[in-house]
Structures are given as C-alpha cells and as structure tokens.
C-alpha cells in the first residue's frame, strides 16, 4: 500500500495545482472568488484536522476554538493595537501553538468520546471568553478587522487573495503529505492502528499525538487570521461548537486519512449551501439528508470511495478502520 502512495501524492499535488491555476477561468466575478477563497481557507483547516483525525485517529470537536483564537488574536492586535497584520497573525499563531502544546498533553491522554468532550469543552470555553469580553472583541456582534498589509502594500483585491490562499493551500497539502510519508507519519499511522501496539514498538505515542495536535491547531489559527483580514469582519459564529462540528464533517465527508479528501470535503460543504439556498424552507432538511446519505453509502468518505470505484484493480487499500475508538 505504501508503494502506491508515491504516485498519487505527486499526481495529486499536480492536479490540485492545476485546479487552482485554472479555476479563475470559471470565476466570472468577485462573488465566485469569495466562495473559492473560503473553500481554500476551510481546506487549510481540514488538511490539518485530517492529520489529527484521519492519521493519528484523535478526534477534535474544538478546532473552531483555535480558528477563532487565530482570527480574533490577529484582529485585536492589528485593529485595536495597530500592530502590522503579518506580525499580529504570527503572534496569534504562536499563542495558539503554545496553548495547544500546554493543553494538548492532558487532553490527549483521553480517548475517544472523552477526548471529543474535552476538545469540545475547550472550544466552548474559548467561544465564551470571546463572546463575553466585548470591550476587546466586540462581543456577539463581532468586530471590524483592518485589511492585510505588508509594509504599505494592502491586500484587498479578491483576485490577489485567491492566489495567496491557493499558494498557502498547496503549501499546507505539501507539508501534510510529507509529514505523512516521514518516519513520524508512519509512527502516526501505527498509532492509529493501535496505540499500545505502537508503544510496544518503541514509538512515543504521546509526543507524536501532541505534535500533530499542535500542527493542526496552527493550520486552523492561520486560516482563521487570514479569514478575519479577508472578510474585514469577524463574529463569534465562526468559533461555535457547531463550526467545530462542521469542520470535522468536512474531513469525514471528503474521506478520512486522505489529504485530498479533506480538500474535497471542505470544497463540497462550503459550496453546497450556496446551491441549497434556493430550496428555502427545505434547505436544512435536504442538507441533513445529503449528509446522512453520503455517509451511509460512502462510509469512508467521498474521495476514498470514488478512488476505489475508479481503480478496481488496485488492492482495496486501507482496510484498517479509521476511528479506532470503536474498538476501545
């Protein structure tokens, strides 16, 4: 199975780069750019989250918290205190990394649903602080955020944002693929299979889990900061546990343990509501039904299920079940 990894990896990167490069042909106005940029930002979060969920087998229902800290950290430092946006973003990222590192160790000792609850709790606490401290954050109504500037150059045009986000997404995917293929990545996959088994083989499970947790938090934080500057406005609705669940849904929908699946999942679930809005009163019902239907008929997610369909000659890869908590 590992031998097969090399070619889809390069092929996938090239395909993704091509899609990003050619997509603007179909983007006839700023609204389409807007949606494409949101897809890219969500995809960055999902690529990170997929490392945690898909490869390390650790669930998180609190990543909207990291996303929100990145967004609000950058927004507050740049808009309230006049820091340069790039510096604000990097500072927010550092804070998030430090926080993930500190809380990661005790939280990641928990398993399965207990871990889900702990991360969910962490996310909700972050949400409450952001929604309550309205002098700093603007409270539930949110706050305006200054444009992203480097020196005197302001990043305003949707087209520019598109290329920046596209490049960052490629970088995120490249990082993730390399991590998965590194010795650390192999350790991760062993960990997913069986933690005790991995430890018997001399893998420091706790350290690896923590590393992936921090990386995924950083991805979320960076995407959050960028989103705040791109939108020019941020409200706590992006920090709710519902948004955390939405992010996990994107990962699972696209296909766990598939980096490109995470990208596809993010794209599908970001674009879908734009279609479904014409259904008005039926929108919620149809959205729920689509979610259920997809997961029932493609339990491994869209990308792995389709890959299997189109490549019948390949050995059915990855018979290991994602989400090992079921065996606990």
């Amino acid at each position: 199975m590992r031998q097969n990894f090399a070619s889809p990896r390069v092929g996938g990167m090239v395909a993704l780069a091509l899609v990003i490069a050619l997509l603007p042909v179909g983007l006839s106005n700023n609204y389409f750019y807007d949606v494409a940029i949101l897809v890219g930002l969500n995809a960055i979060v999902c690529v990170g989250l997929n490392l945690l969920i898909g490869y390390a087998g650790q669930i998180s229902l609190g990543h909207a918290g990291f996303y929100g800290l990145g967004a609000y950290g950058s927004a507050i430092l740049s808009s309230r205190y006049g820091w340069p946006p790039l510096l604000s973003m990097l500072s927010a990222t550092l804070v998030v990394a430090a926080l993930a590192f500190v809380v990661g160790r005790p939280i990641l000792r928990l398993k399965g649903h207990y871990l889900a609850m702990a991360t969910l709790g962490l996310g909700v606490i972050i949400f409450m602080v952001i929604a309550t401290e309205d002098k700093l954050t603007g409270g539930p109504d949110g706050m305006s955020v200054v444009a992203f500037k480097i020196g005197s150059f302001a990043l305003r045009e949707a087209q520019l944002w598109y290329w920046v986000v596209g490049a960052l997404l490629l970088a995120a995917v490249w990082l993730a693929l390399n991590l998965i293929d590194s010795p650390a990545g192999r350790a991760l996959r062993a960990l997913h299979g069986s933690e005790v088994g991995a430890e018997v083989l001399g893998i420091d499970a706790a350290r690896h889990k923590l590393m992936v947790f921090v990386i995924s938090a950083v991805f979320a934080s960076v995407a959050g900061s960028l989103n705040a500057h791109f939108s020019g406005f941020i409200t706590p609705s992006k920090v709710t546990f519902l948004h955390s669940i939405e992010l996990v849904t994107m990962v699972v929908f696209g296909g766990m343990a598939s980096t490109f699946g995470a990208v596809v999942g993010a794209a599908a679930l970001t674009v879908l509501p734009q279609f479904l809005t014409v259904l008005k009163d039926y929108e919620m019902m149809v959205f729920g039904a689509l979610m259920m239907g997809t997961m029932i008929f493609m339990p491994r997610g869209v990308v792995p299920s389709l890959a299997r369909l189109f490549a019948p000659r390949r050995r059915p890869e990855g018979e290991r079940k994602p989400g090992s908590e079921g065996a606990a």
Binding site: Y282, M285, A289, M295, P299, R300
Partner: peptide, 28 residues
C-alpha cells in the same frame, strides 16, 4: 443500520446529519 460496520466517527456524522434533518423537518 444501513451503515453497519462503518467507523464510529462516520456514524457520528450520520447522527449529526439526522439531527439537522429532524430540525429542518420540525420547521416544516
């Protein structure tokens, strides 16, 4: 039942889908 054998997290997403579906149904 139709998703028997799917991973736990897949089942969680199915139940989340069901909750959205039921909420939408209730508004109708």
């Amino acid at each position: 039942e139709p998703a028997r054998g799917a991973s736990v997290i897949t089942l969680i997403i199915i139940t989340i889908g069901a909750s959205i579906f039921l909420r939408g149904l209730a508004t109708l």
